[in-house]
């Protein structure tokens, strides 16, 4: 079907004898927001590693914007327009908040290496100022990222991924370890980037309250496969989901 932003078919990856991802199928439209839930060890993070190029699949194919990206190197996957936020906040602790964003902003001209220094910067400062406002860190622009709280780190990393101008963002447990308030703020941020910036989002989540707040489509993953897909209210009523996950 044309119009699919990301199309995954028959994706499998095994470690030794364990099938972490087993015949996974998924389609995502250009401005969709999808939440993948599932018990620990069901292969969610492996799935992200396969999409972002950090792992090679054993079988199956991943198509992004109609092009095959299966097995491509991580930086090439990122260039094709897939941004990823890692589970453990991954920021540059010894750089300031604005420098963190500047690194992400330079990713595109930086493809030319040193030649990237000769590209024009018009509009970039305003874009970065908007972005730093969106993630709510204006006051801390000059602060070293290592001084940020856990929640602020997560937002900064989301901001960095957004600064590269992706079409699809993979968020790996963005609210892990967050307070209720921070979680709420994160939900707003995710909705803002999905609706206002038109970025498709796939997120892995454990916090059902967060998923409920987002009011998005939910896919339930178990033993490396999607076993159910629908909106939050439909999915939570499924017996197997209740049993396996919601308790």
């Amino acid at each position: 079907m044309p119009g699919d932003l990301l199309k995954i078919s028959g994706l499998s990856r095994s470690f030794g004898g364990v099938q972490a991802v087993a015949g996974f199928d998924l389609r995502i439209g250009a401005d969709e927001l999808l939440c993948i839930i599932g018990p620990n060890g069901c292969g969610k993070t492996t799935l992200f590693n396969l999409i972002s190029g950090h792992l090679r699949p054993s079988f199956g194919s991943i198509q992004f914007k109609g092009a095959e990206i299966t097995g491509m190197a991580p930086h090439l996957v990122a260039r094709s327009g897939i941004g990823r936020k890692f589970q453990v906040p991954s920021i540059y602790e010894d750089l300031s908040v604005s420098e963190n964003l500047a690194v992400a902003d330079f990713a595109e001209p930086g493809r030319k290496g040193l030649g990237g220094l000769f590209t024009s910067r018009t509009g970039n400062d305003r874009r970065l100022a908007n972005l730093i406002g969106l993630i709510g860190l204006e006051e801390l622009a000059g602060a070293p990222a290592g001084h940020l709280s856990h929640g602020q780190r997560q937002w900064l990393e989301i901001g960095m991924v957004l600064a590269t101008g992706p079409d699809l963002i993979l968020l790996d447990e963005p609210t892990a370890g967050m307070t209720r308030q921070e979680t709420e703020r994160t939900a707003q941020l995710v909705q803002a980037m999905n609706r206002e910036q038109g970025v498709a989002v796939i997120l892995i989540e454990h916090d059902m309250w967060f998923v409920e707040t987002l009011k998005c489509a939910v896919a339930v993953m178990m033993q490396g496969q999607v076993i159910a897909k629908g909106d939050y209210d439909t999915v939570r009523e499924l017996d197997m989901v209740k049993e396996a996950y919601l308790g």
């Binding site: 540059y92 690194v103 493809r111």
Partner: peptide, 14 residues
């Protein structure tokens, strides 16, 4: 130097 994996995932050929 500070976080190669992160930088790679931003699209840099580290």
């Amino acid at each position: 130097a500070s976080h190669e994996m992160r930088t790679k995932s931003l699209g840099y050929d580290t």
